[in-house]
Design a protein around this nucleic acid. Structure first.
Lengths: 225, 225
DNA sequence: CAAATATAATAGTATTACTATCATTTTTGC
DNA sequence: GCAAAAATGATAGTAATACTATTATATTTG
């Protein structure tokens, strides 16, 4: 059914939780219902109070796991990127052509997990929607430099770096691999959002893979020398 | 010194203000100091109370101009995009080659206005930074469909449409002009932000024009048939 | 100059984003 | 099996936010 072993854990920097939520029943409930609530309400309307009520616990208990809802969001995003990197590694195993590797990478980034697929307490479809819509709010703030030094974005940067290496294999002279990859990743999120809410900013096609195709085409043409 | 006449006004949909801020001294103060405060504090920390104190007025008075700080942000963004469209029109006058037109369009989008340049009560450098960093927060919310029907994004969409037309001139068969342009516009904002705060996600170069060059290169390669 | 309108001053409400305290339950180490 | 430690629950409290309401005072306008 799935490729995961029971032993794998995705690492999130310790600055972003007070107590590891994967270490207790309550912690796992906070994560699973937290994902559901952010997905339903949006990050602005989501509060620890509402989450407490939903899981039959209290605000105070949640604060023993996470310092703030911003750190909770960073925690979730970081986990997501660690999980994506793992997926990437698996998806690229034994694929040798760098073009194929890059294509597969984009495909993975553009893929929306199936509803109800989950890994431990993480609902993947919900988490993917959250990262899509909410995660930019974790860096578009005045404290970005602070949380960055605490490691909020290492998992994300590592994934970008990994994909950049493939670009460099294809064209070592290409001057903008990091810009290209970060533009593409954020662009995928944005286009997914636009397709649903601001369709005049996209070119939706019957073919469900058009976002992936657009970005694959974009990236491959860009790095051709 | 500048190209603007005293008679030009940029149109923002009426849903986004209660009373036209350009119609009174207080209104103009709200806008000019509002821009300054959002720029300094970030949108999350910005409040009407702080703005009231800063301009020697009260929260209640500001609420007579704007229903909420979200609508204020939409107002500012809409004004910005109307202004950008006007700039674009001027910048493209008498330029006939569509490639040149597109290049100039990107250059304009990537340009950061000089400090202290302003048009009426709008400080352009500050407003540009706000649009860069904060404006995505006006659509990445659960009420995006509602504000969209009220016209929050018409000015933005219109600019995208205008640029798409140039793309279609160059290659009428290109399938993704809207995706390409919205990706590029948002990408420019993102890369500017990354250059300052998350440099590992960019490829900063000594040449101050590298963002513009990257996106021009990207877009022209993408639409080549 | 009266009437209309805009602004200021003040107060109030429900909610948020926390922190603090203390009692109770659960876990653990011996 | 029990005491000590740790985790959770229950409750309360604070400062700030995002507003709304009321009334008084300026300012504009016909």
């Amino acid at each position: 059914m799935n490729n995961f072993t029971n032993n794998i854990r995705f690492h999130v920097g310790e600055s972003f939780y007070i107590k590891d939520p994967e270490s207790s029943e309550l912690g796992r409930k906070i994560v699973s219902v937290g994902i559901k609530l952010i997905d339903e309400l949006g990050f602005e309307e989501f509060t620890f109070r509402k989450l407490g009520q939903e899981i039959g616990s209290t605000e105070a208990s949640i604060y023993r796991y996470f310092e703030s809802k911003n750190k909770f969001l960073i925690y979730l995003s970081s986990w997501y990127w660690a999980w994506m990197e793992y997926n990437l590694i698996i998806s690229l195993t034994n694929i040798h052509s760098p073009e194929k590797r890059l294509e597969r990478g984009i495909a993975l980034l553009a893929l929306e997990p199936k509803e109800n697929e989950h890994l431990d307490c993480f609902n993947l479809a919900g988490l993917s929607r959250i990262v899509n819509t909410e995660s930019s709010k974790s860096y578009l703030t005045k404290d970005v430099d602070q949380v960055n030094t605490e490691g909020a974005f290492v998992n994300y940067k590592q994934l970008v770096t990994r994909l950049c290496e493939i670009v460099k294999e294809i064209n070592p002279k290409y001057k903008y691999p990091n810009m290209l990859l970060s533009t593409v990743i954020e662009g995928i999120h944005l286009q997914r959002f636009f397709a649903e809410h601001l369709p005049k900013l996209t070119n939706r096609q019957k073919d469900g893979q058009y976002i992936q195709k657009f970005f694959t085409d974009l990236i491959l043409k860009a790095i051709k020398s």
